[in-house]
Simulated assay, not measured.
Amino acid sequence: MKCVAFDIGETLTCDDRYWASWADWLDVPHHTLSAPVGAVVAQGRDNADALRLLRPDIDLTVEYAARERAGLGELLTENDLYPDVRPALAALCDLGVRVVVAGNQTRRAGESLRSLGLPADAVAVSEEWGTAKPDVEFFHRVTDLARAEPEETLYVGDHPANDVFPAREAGLLTAHLRRGPWGRLWADTREVLAAADWSVSGLGQLASVVAGK
């Protein structure tokens, strides 16, 4: 194994603040938005459908632009990182493997993530690439970023449909992370267990995966 590549949302970063911000923007209690988020997750739908359930006539393009003007656009901070991110990435670097980050995020989110100075060799996001998961082209770009063959690259993510299944289809090794709503909901399904080369409950387990490969 020459490279470990990481998804971003609910793998490296916690989405709690993001959804809380949307609840405040829509002027509803946080738990009122949490319920439809859980519903669309369970149904395998687009995350944004949770917002449409609360406001059926919402124009998300308009709302995203308005939030951006209000200073509430996508911005990732140190507080959004899960506690195991820095030590886990540093441990992988110490093992001599290339560490990259690649997920479905906006250009601004990518810039803010790079500004955090993570122990990673490269950070890239879908808006910069012009392709997004689960498209196979996204994973071709991941292997380019990895500077390794697909079978030498491990992709780590929480979402089976966006991370595990398409990465495997593209020929990459896969690790399913039992974290967040997507990671936990389908963790023990036959399909996920069959598709993932490894299942981990925390990023700290990856050093052992790499060392044992």
Rank of each mutant, 00 (worst) to 15 (best):
E137M: 08
K133H: 05
S34P: 02
F165H: 13
G130V: 08
L203K: 07
V125R: 00
Q43A: 15
W186S: 10
L193A: 15
G202C: 13
G9M: 12
T153R: 05
E10Y: 07
D49C: 07
E137V: 09
H31G: 00
G157P: 02
L53H: 05
D94V: 05
V125G: 07
D84V: 03
L118V: 11
D197W: 08
L203G: 02
G202K: 08
G38P: 04
A70C: 08
R190V: 15
A102M: 12
E10W: 04
K213L: 15
P56N: 08
V28E: 10
S21Q: 13
V85P: 09
D16N: 02
L185C: 00
G38S: 09
A42Q: 04
G117R: 07
R107Y: 05
R67K: 06
E152A: 14
H159V: 09
R178G: 02
L203D: 05
A148P: 01
L72M: 13
V37N: 13
Y82R: 00
G212C: 12
E63Y: 09
V156P: 06
E152F: 12
A161S: 13
C93K: 15
D46S: 14
V62G: 06
D15L: 15
W22T: 07
R107V: 14
S21P: 04
I8M: 08
G103K: 09
D144H: 12
D163R: 07
E128T: 01
T11F: 00
E74Y: 06
A161N: 10
S208Y: 01
R98E: 04
L154W: 12
R98G: 08
V209I: 15
D7V: 02
C14Y: 00
D121I: 04
S21T: 14
G117V: 09
K213M: 12
L203E: 02
F139W: 06
E63H: 03
L95I: 03
V4Y: 02
K2P: 04
V192F: 03
H159M: 09
T77E: 09
Y18N: 01
D94L: 11
T189V: 01
V62D: 11
V101P: 02
G103L: 04
V41T: 13
D15Y: 06
C3K: 10
D144W: 10
T77S: 14
L95E: 05
H159S: 05
V200H: 03
F138I: 08
